[in-house]
Structure formats: structure tokens, C-alpha cells
Nucleic acid binder design. Structure first.
Lengths: 343, 343
DNA sequence: TCTTAGCACTCTAAGGCAAAGAGTGCTAAA
DNA sequence: TTTAGCACTCTTTGCCTTAGAGTGCTAAGA
């Protein structure tokens, strides 16, 4: 545990730097936070903090800037004494999201937009479709040998996909197939179903029953659902941030790969389980391209299960306080919405 | 018609500037294009071109830069003597897109990515769902009073939406409803169906038959499909272009509004009908925020009907030649794919 | 022993200035 | 009509200086 005075100064520097991205000097903090120390004392303390690796100097006679370790200390502190996400924000969000409850994806799109009010990047993603559980699956033949698969999960996810068969299948066969799948696999996790089907396929192949093995093939294909990736909003404000002005291309590239973002969100989401939200700061990021970004994320649940993640992506000097509150409040509202205390 | 010499110089300037966004001087063009004129002559010609509004000078002693009118002349010229989109590009695209044929949206996503190889922004959009024609509609009840609507259009578009009713409806009723809609409206344009339903609703209201009017209400809601907007790819390279370095925020904001982009694409697409592709250059853009961008777009068809649009968005000094070829070739390949000369 | 005032020092940012370079417009000759 | 030549304009670049911000160190004060 850091001496109180050290911590106080460190947090003052972090907060100042979050507000305006200029190196912050000793005089400045003393004035701004009305400390009882003199600038000289603060300078000594800052020198100590720098030695410990929490601050750094862009050049010898400039103010100090927090390092990622500095942010980390600050964030951990927030985590510990975090006040319950303010009621006001919760109420606001509830009101704003009320008319979006229709289906999960529309909801998440809206949520991303709400989160972008942080002036950073708002993101929201449903849990991987393959981890959800089957509520219902329907197959329709269409345009010759194509089959449209529509899957509804218990989590409110709807996904569709088109598959093409070598030969047409009769509508009656398709109907029978859907019914079979529904009655047999209703409530199963998509992953399990797929696993099971693969096993059965190999058995059937041995038996060489053409009809059944064909049916299984259709089912197997049907369950390879496209992952709907991540909803993002606020790109413009985010990229317009002064922090990035020199390396827009790099930053844009980092968040353009939705797969990466999705994976990070998921990981953070599971990590946050108990704490409410989790934060990944700059160089802590396993993805090299995102080392100059921070991510705040929180999972939302449905019927106890984790159903997806929301988050805010910003520069390392982002307003963690606010971001955490927003993200947690949002997650909570989504969880409420999904728990269906609806009309 | 411009004197041949004038045109030659103008095009040389345009092409140079497309390659590198620096004002181009008289000496430079003479050297680069091995003209038989001297720099002095070129200067005279350039002065003429400037007077005519095709070139401009950033400052008195700088080289010349094309104006939007200059680009327009250049593009019209390309349009006129446009060689058939090279076979090579067509073949390449066919190969690359072969395994994406599954459904329209996956295809368009891939197409956008292909187009972003231009190092500009690749965009692709299906025609408005409301303009497509109904192949099939299905309604399932789900989680209490929710109904999932799945609609398949003849154009290969699949769209789903969730609607919530004040009271649950029995599965049997829903099934009957779907069947009714399918048998009665199969092949109709979505817009027409909606129009028709509105009319009937008002009649029924007069008759006060609760059950029927309720059914009609469901149908009406069911057909208000979300528009799937635009697929984009290549954001990072696009925003990294030196042309925008100073105004990234502005540019990002301009293309963040997918509705606007969609509308522009549609308009350009219809405009291009005969010509293969259409080009909107800088200040010609009706949308103020996009006045520093150019758009090249081409429609693709299915069974004679326009089924969507693909395009490239770039800076005004974009490589129109290449963009037009790419866009046209892409549109053609999509049209081929959709016409279903498939396995 | 800890804090603070004072001061010399360092480094950047901003402004001024001159020189270099690129490109022009004009004029007069071919 | 074309082009060579030349004076002129304007930006870019580098260099220098100055102002300002902030530091680290030292020595005095509590």
C-alpha cells in the first residue's frame, strides 16, 4: 500500500491528465487541488512516484504523465471504493432504452450508441451464438436447392443463414427435420448439439443410410451460424480525439478487426463477473495493436447465464470513473430488460 | 469540346495529382509525360484552364490542383471511352467471391471488403427491403407475447424482426396467419403489401371485427422491417489517407451516418442504370458533409430488377479509372452470381 | 528530520528572419 | 504560335532567439 500522500498526488496527476492531455506540473496540482504542500514538496513526491514507475516525464523539464501502471493503481482504487453506479444514470438509461427492447440486436445497437456518449467508442456484443441455447430452429426450402435456417435462442438471439445443398429437399422433409431438431434439442446449447451431431454422423456413415446421413449433414451445416460480431458507435468522436491525431490509421486498424475486439470483450466480461466491470489498460492488452487503448467492460446476464458484454474503448487517459459507471449501469439495465419484467 | 491540347494537359494534371496529392507544376508534367511542349507553353495552357475553372492554385506561386469541374471532365472522358471492365479483374473477382455466394448479406460483406482493396472505402448495400418482393414470411411465437417474423424475399434477402403484442397469440393462429400472408401476397412488393394492409385495416376497423383487425395489426407491424443499412470495409486505410489528416473527425462523421450513405448509393445506382457506373464528385454531393469526398457506384441486378448497389468512397482525387473498373466489375459479378447459374 | 523558499538549469514552443526552391507570369525573340 | 529568359512571388526549411514552464538541488526554517 502506497503512503497516502503519494497516492493523493498520483491520483491528482491522473485526474488532471484525463481532463486535459498535457503533462501536469507541480504548481498546477497544488493550485488545482488546494493541497497544503508546496510545489517543491510535490516535486519531491513526483520524483519518487517516477522512480516507482507510476509517472513519467516526456522530457526533462516537462510535467509528469501517468504510466500504465499509474492508471492501474488509480483504477484499482476506484474498483475498491466504487460507489454503486449512481441511480440517476440508471434511471436515465432505463428511460432511453425502453423503446428498444424489441430484440437483442436492436437493443445492443442502441446500447452502443448510448455508451458512445462517453465521447469514446461504445461497443456491445452478444455472447457467441454457439454458447447460447436453442429455443427453436426452422428450415425453409427456397429458390431451388437453398435452405434458409432461422434459429432463435433462449437468450433472444435470432440468427439466420442460407445453406446450399447439392440436391433439393422436399418441403415435407424439411419440416420433419425441423420438428425433429426442435423436439430433440430444444434447450440444448448450440455447441453441444453440434458435437452430438458430429458423433451421430460418423456412426451413421458406418451404417450407410443415405437419407439419414444427408439429414444430419443439413443439420450440421445449419448450425454453423455466422457470428454477428460487435456493435460499435461513436467512431467519429473517438477517432477525433487529440490523443490519436498522429496515428489515426493505426488506431482505426486496431478496432477494425471485430474478431479481436469481440474476444477481448468476452475475456474482460468473464473476468468482471464478481467485480461488476473490468478494465484493461494500455500495455496490459494482449493485442499488440491496441496497446495505446484502454477498455472498460461489463457483462450482462439472462437467467443467471452471461448473455453478452458491453464496453467502452478509449485512450489510456480515459475517464475511468465515468466509463465504469456508464458501463456497469448499462449492463445492469440490459440484464433487467432481458429478465423480462416486461409488459 | 475542349481543344485537344488543353484536355491533354488537364488530364495529365489530374492523373499526377491522383498519384500524389501535391500541386503539380508545369515542368513536372512536361517531364513526366514527355510532352513536346515546353514548360512555358504548358504554363500558358494551365493559365487558360484555370480561367475556365478546371484547375486552381493553392497560392500564387504553387503548381495547379484540379477543381471538381476538372475531375468531372476527366471522369466524363473515362465514361465515354471506357474500355470494357478488364477481363482480368472480372476473373479475379469471380474466383474470390465464389465461396461467398451463400446469401446476399454475406456476399455483400465480402464485396465491400474486396472493394476496399482500392485503398478507399468499399461499400455495398442491398436495395431497400421494402422494395423487394415477398417470397415467404413466417411468424413464430416465442417467449410469451413475442413474435419473431422472418421474411425471405425473392431477391435473396432474409430479414428478421421481433414484435411484441399486448397479448399472446396461439401458435395455431400464427401459423394460419403466415399461411394466409404467403398465399395471398407471395410475389408482391413489400411496399404494396403494406399499403394494402393499411387500407384493409381501416375498412376492418369500421366493421369492428376484433380478431381480424388484430391479425392485420400483427401483419402490419411484421412488415416494418429494419433496414440492414450498408456494409463498409477499409475504414482504416481510408481514414489514414493524407488528404484527410487534418479533418478525420469530420470525415468519419460524414460516413458514420449510414442512412445518408445508403440514400446516396441508391440515387447513384439508379442514375447509373445505362452507363454502368455513376460518379459523384466533391461539391456535386447534395450532402454538405461529404463535399470533400467522391463516390463511384454501380447497381447490380437480379432478374432484371435492381437489387442493390456497390460503390467506392474516396477523396476527390481518387483513382476514378480504377475505381470505376472495380465497381463495375464487382456489380457484374454479383449480378451473375444472383442470376443463379449456380451448381 | 521533514518541509519549503530560492535559484540555476533544462527543455520546448513560438516567433522572426534569411536563404533555398519551386513555380509562376510576362516579355521579347525565334 | 511557341519558347527562352528573367524577375517576381510565395512557401518551406533551418536557424536563432526569447519566453515560459517546470524541474532538481541547496540551504534555511520548523
Amino acid at each position: 500500500m502506497l503512503a497516502e500522500r503519494l497516492q493523493k498526488i498520483l491520483f491528482a496527476v491522473v485526474q488532471s491528465y484525463i481532463q486535459r492531455p498535457d503533462p501536469v506540473g507541480s504548481r498546477y496540482v497544488v493550485k488545482k487541488y488546494a493541497f497544503s504542500f508546496s510545489p517543491a514538496t510535490v516535486r519531491n513526491i513526483m520524483a519518487d512516484l517516477e522512480e516507482m514507475g507510476f509517472l513519467s516525464q516526456p522530457h526533462t523539464s516537462a510535467g509528469r504523465v501517468p504510466t500504465d501502471r499509474g492508471y492501474r493503481l488509480y483504477v484499482n482504487h476506484l474498483l475498491r471504493k466504487r460507489r454503486r453506479a449512481e441511480e440517476r444514470m440508471l434511471r436515465l438509461l432505463r428511460a432511453r432504452l425502453r423503446n428498444l427492447q424489441e430484440d437483442l440486436e436492436a437493443l445492443l445497437q442502441g446500447v452502443a450508441r448510448e455508451l458512445s456518449a462517453s465521447s469514446y467508442l461504445g461497443v456491445a456484443a452478444p455472447a457467441r451464438a454457439s454458447r447460447t441455447t436453442l429455443n427453436r430452429i426452422e428450415l425453409f426450402g427456397y429458390r431451388g436447392s437453398r435452405v434458409a435456417v432461422v434459429l432463435i435462442s433462449n437468450e433472444g438471439l435470432i440468427r439466420h443463414r442460407v445453406i446450399r445443398l447439392s440436391r433439393p429437399v422436399s418441403p415435407a422433409d424439411l419440416r420433419r427435420l425441423s420438428e425433429y431438431l426442435n423436439s430433440r434439442f430444444g434447450g440444448w446449447a448450440i455447441d453441444e448439439i453440434r458435437l452430438r451431431l458430429v458423433k451421430e454422423m460418423s456412426q451413421e456413415k458406418a451404417m450407410c443410410d443415405m437419407l439419414i446421413s444427408r439429414a444430419l449433414e443439413i443439420c450440421g451445416k445449419a448450425l454453423e451460424l455466422p457470428e454477428q460480431g460487435v456493435f460499435m458507435a461513436g467512431m467519429a468522436d473517438f477517432l477525433g480525439l487529440p490523443d490519436f491525431s498522429s496515428r489515426i490509421g493505426e488506431i482505426a486498424r486496431a478496432i477494425e478487426d471485430k474478431h479481436l475486439v469481440l474476444r477481448l470483450l468476452e475475456e474482460l466480461g468473464t473476468e468482471a463477473q464478481e467485480a461488476g466491470s473490468a478494465v484493461l489498460i494500455g500495455s496490459e492488452n494482449p493485442v499488440k495493436e491496441m496497446r495505446s487503448l484502454s477498455i472498460v467492460a461489463a457483462p450482462f446476464r439472462q437467467e443467471g447465464r452471461m448473455a453478452g458484454t458491453v464496453g467502452i474503448i478509449g485512450p489510456t487517459r480515459m475517464d475511468y470513473q465515468r466509463a465504469m459507471t456508464m458501463v456497469e449501469a448499462t449492463a445492469q439495465v440490459i440484464t433487467e430488460t432481458l429478465s423480462g419484467k416486461e409488459s
